[in-house]
Design a binder for these strands. Structure first.
Lengths: 213, 213
DNA sequence: TAGATTGTTAATCGATTAACAATC
DNA sequence: TAGATTGTTAATCGATTAACAATC
């Protein structure tokens, strides 16, 4: 504890650094300066150095940054050296899409269970994981060391399900339901509101058309 | 043209206002003050008033805001009174999930076509739309007044496909591929990088555990 | 050593919050 | 009219960028 708090603006940029560094590493680049990285990523070199220095010095004067080392360190900061068990709640199209996405496993997120209240879906198999009835959710979360719940259910049931999850010790919710969850301090929620994202796109299309008409 | 530029921070909040106002409208609330809305949404009343005033005065002193009127106006600002034809490129799980999501239609986004380079998927039906081979993409975009392309393909082909789309007059790309697209000025790109979102969640889980250990 | 580039402090910019006069 | 609440200006806060001394 007592580390200085890092702003969410900085956190939000870390995955992108991680992605670029991973790609550089894969093509065999050994070292990179903040200047070079800034041109590649189209951000300022100043911001890159400030961001990294929130976590201590990863570079070396006169040399730059070692790509592989920096990549690993950012991975650690993001907690990708830890593993977390997760369940998906809602076996509709989106839930199944996320369950089938293999890359999460590579980052330490282990797909353990899937739940749906629709009896027609119960028993179906998603990448080796059987869909279970909602009634089994709470016990399953308690007994299988589940850290993260992915919510891909309609907003009407999302709030109620989130409450149950919290009571059974979930640490984090990745929320795709179109509603804001109200959880106690200490439970992490990351919202992915797809309609919001599409509306932003819509605004920007319109704005551009107006500006150029 | 020559409207004052609205910051993306403000734009990013509009869909959430829109959602809350829609819900208030649906339960029959007629008027609301910035103070009441601020308690509901957990933002400051000051921010709400500043945000709305970017677009001119929607309220009335001593009264507050008319919910239905405000809802409609924000909808217009977001361009939800316009219709846009879109295609989905990539008929995998995620592409099909988005194709099946009915709500987009309600907001003026019309699902017109779906494309995949896998012959096994071509001909499949997603909510009345047949999956076509990638070879037909460019002609289809040109001839069917397609504004928006949804990219749910692997990053390896995303950049190349984006270039083709741009050449055939697409206005906007909703990009789910895990790569940054480089498009000309005036083409709108909205990224949904799901892994980035999950990494942010991962960071916050870890941080909380460290702070409390 | 000289040159390069970081780490870090200072300056700037933009976004959020507070305050209050205008007005319904 | 008096009370309520907006619209808007001013103050604060935080994030980004610039500058440069430290140092590899």
């Amino acid at each position: 504890m007592e580390e200085k708090e890092i702003s969410q603006a900085v956190i939000g940029r870390l995955p992108r650094y991680f992605r670029y560094l991973g790609e550089l590493k894969d093509v065999g680049v050994e070292r990179i300066s903040s200047q070079e990285l800034s041109e590649l990523m189209k951000v300022t070199a100043s911001q890159i150095r400030q961001d990294f220095n929130n976590f201590g010095g990863f570079g070396q004067q006169g040399y730059g940054y070692n790509v592989e080392y920096l990549y690993k360190e950012i991975g650690k900061i993001l907690g990708l050296d830890q593993t977390h068990n997760f369940v998906i709640i809602g076996a509709g199209n989106l839930g199944r899409a996320l369950g089938n996405y293999m890359n999460f496993e590579r980052r330490g997120f282990i797909f353990r269970g899937m739940f749906d209240q629709n009896p027609a879906l119960v028993g179906q198999d998603v990448r080796g994981v059987k869909v279970r009835p909602m009634e089994e959710l709470e016990q399953f979360v308690r007994e299988n060391d589940i850290d993260i719940a992915v919510l891909t259910i309609p907003k009407t049931s999302a709030v109620e399900v989130a409450d149950k999850l919290v009571h059974n010790g979930i640490k984090a919710i990745w929320n795709f339901a179109h509603v804001d969850l109200n959880v106690p301090e200490g439970i992490q929620v990351e919202n992915v509101h797809l309609s919001d994202s599409l509306m932003k796109l819509s605004y920007n299309i319109n704005r551009y058309m107006k500006e150029n008409s």
